[in-house]
Design a protein around this nucleic acid. Structure first.
Lengths: 369, 369
DNA sequence: CGCTCGAAGTAACGCGCGTTAGTAAATAGG
DNA sequence: CCTATTTACTAACGCGCGTTACTTCGAGCG
């Protein structure tokens, strides 16, 4: 798999390995005691200054001297020791199926950024129940266990698509917040996208563009995403005095091929002008990708002849389809950030606003409507 | 942004928040001492058993009793305390631009899995120099700093696309391995994809399918990816006694639109059969996506009339284009895993095989050739 | 001058654990 | 029976730090 070569550019220098001695515990690391000695004060004084305690009385001058010593020695606090002594870690853990990548990442990013803002550290553990053969409890449990060994103060559990989940039992030992999923037992607080409102805003956009016959390319009708988005669609139509024609709703595989086939079925069911929809609401972007092909194959132009709107905002698809796809975004980053905020409230003993928080799915205007 | 609603299903139970008292440091956490007391032995004995020391002599019976107590009490070691006492953390840190998502993730996954195997923990910190306004050193330095505070034993630094980077100075304090990038100063060991071999295998595949006139949709010619892939392309052609016709190489923006335009230019330059290439080598998948459109627009079929091959294997594109795109994969997971292995060697004081390790880019056969 | 009181600091404990040096009992060897 | 080993443990130290309780010193007050 991997083959080795010489470095192309730099001279074959004698390996820049920092530790020359083999595995010697090179006690590199200046401690508070070193700083104290350098500044000519007690370790306590250093501790007081570094945690800038209010009620500690350290003269400006000593404080200055200490801070200078910190700089000079390059002192860096030992997070582990600090956690041990203070009995709090400032760490949160997040366990997620990083394998089905593109989604989880944005959740992590949102959470990461928010954690950073509140001076907390996010430990990421893989869950990877990719093993289709039943819930791969082994790895997931181990992940949570590992995080608890790090003494995380709270846990985030994120799914790649909106659904019900069973979390490892140990997760109940610390405050836990679910992101993009909800507890099948209904015990844990969760944060999910507002699918219904999302479906609504998508269809409202189509209505606003003058479309009244709208074809719907549906997902597996049982998953929360499909239920919510379709409900929102119906609401929007109802408000415009319209009804959803069941003939125009076709379910397919959640892939480009599935979308292609569903679009073909819808488009070929009617003649142009004789009931054929002028717009397609695809319940995810991958299906929209397939729908594009079906539309183009029939010599129709997007959006002039047929408008297409997607859902999910999978950047790699939506932003690169031609024309670029107007779609509804899943608010992954926001959910991640809100998850951390919620966790912060929880660990601080503050009440949270709601057991289940829903986050808006914003419409992203591009050029397919 | 976020609006709150009541939970839909579960009864409005009185919030399952574990800590009822507000922010009280609920010393939950059974320690070794608790286990020792329960088992009627000394804490040392427990420690010996749990780290199953070779030369410690603990009778089978006591050992059994201790392990039972561990189970019964649900003892969980405190990683921080352990690190403090043993002066080693078993943690690695990885800093990466998680923002430009789709790539970084696979590196992380590969590293994560490998770390898990070697019983190490991967701390992930964001670098996000997304700020286009110059290298956002601030955040990146802080990230490395934070990781060092956790006393990670080594650092991984991953880029989202193959290029030269400048790492924060502090990174030199511990063993550091670069992934998908290389040190501009040439000091740090790195792991990069073998672009040249990748370009070669792509073109060899086209040659094998009988194509002799091959159009190349090039990236910005200056980046390492373009240089290497094109070089590989030339090598493959040379071996078949062919030469790369400069007329057939068109550079474009690394986007679908860029690929579309480049493909149009190449296809319209010649008549069919009169010098028009029968295959397109797109230096990345996004450009291939645009090329597809150009080909289809001209009524040509893929792969019958024109074969298309990509590079990068961006799943969301390659696996959903119609027909699915044959492409060369960037070995992100492998690079991540190899990074951890290399780091393990480094921290163990063992020599590494090479200053720069190159990882193969495998060809992924789909249906566009 | 004796006293109090705040300012400026310090000594010392303990967080949970790895580890070294030691101890007590059982066994072996002569 | 007495000493050398081995077996089976335990006491105690220290990792780096937060924190509480204490000490020392000078200023202010009557």
């Amino acid at each position: 798999m991997a083959k080795s070569t010489q470095a192309p550019a730099p001279a074959p220098s004698p390996a820049a390995s920092p530790a020359a001695s083999p595995a010697a515990p090179v006690h590199r690391g200046v401690t508070m005691a070193d700083v104290a000695k350098a500044a000519g004060v007690s370790r306590t004084a250093v501790s007081f200054v570094l945690s800038n305690r209010e009620n500690a009385s350290i003269s400006e001058e000593t404080k200055h001297r200490i801070l200078e010593a910190v700089q000079a020695l390059g002192y860096r606090p030992n997070a582990g020791a600090r956690a041990l002594a203070s009995q709090r870690s400032d760490w949160y853990g997040i366990v997620t199926e990083i394998v089905t990548a593109p989604f989880a990442v944005d959740i992590i990013k949102g959470a990461q950024d928010q954690a950073w803002l509140s001076r907390r550290f996010l430990l990421i553990a893989p869950s990877d129940q990719a093993d289709a053969t039943g819930p791969n409890r082994g790895m997931e449990d181990a992940a949570v266990e590992k995080l608890l060994e790090q003494r995380v103060e709270g846990l985030l559990y994120a799914a790649t698509y909106h659904r019900a989940v069973h979390v490892p039992k140990s997760a109940y030992e610390v405050p836990t917040v679910l992101i993009n999923c909800f507890d099948a037992d209904g015990k844990l607080p969760s944060i999910v996208p507002d699918e219904r409102a999302g479906g609504r805003v998508a269809v409202e956009r189509l209505l606003q563009a003058g479309h009244t016959r709208i074809g719907v390319i549906n997902l597996d009708p049982d998953i929360p995403a499909a239920v919510g988005r379709l409900e929102g669609c119906r609401e929007a139509l109802a408000e415009a005095g319209l009804e959803l024609d069941p003939e125009l709703v076709v379910s397919g595989h959640a892939t480009a091929d599935g979308g292609y086939e569903a679009a073909c079925e819808i488009l070929d069911k009617y003649q142009a002008g004789a009931g054929r929809p002028t717009a397609l609401f695809c319940l995810n972007d991958r299906m929209a990708m397939g729908a594009y092909d079906a539309v183009k194959e029939r010599g129709l132009a997007i959006p002039q002849d047929i408008a297409v709107i997607g859902f999910d905002n999978q950047e790699l698809i939506a932003a690169y389809l031609r024309p670029k796809l107007t779609t509804v975004a899943l608010p992954f980053e926001e959910m991640g950030a809100l998850g951390v905020q919620t966790l912060a409230s929880l660990t601080a003993g503050q009440p949270i606003t709601a057991h289940q928080q829903m986050v808006d799915c914003p419409l992203l205007e591009r050029y397919s409507v």
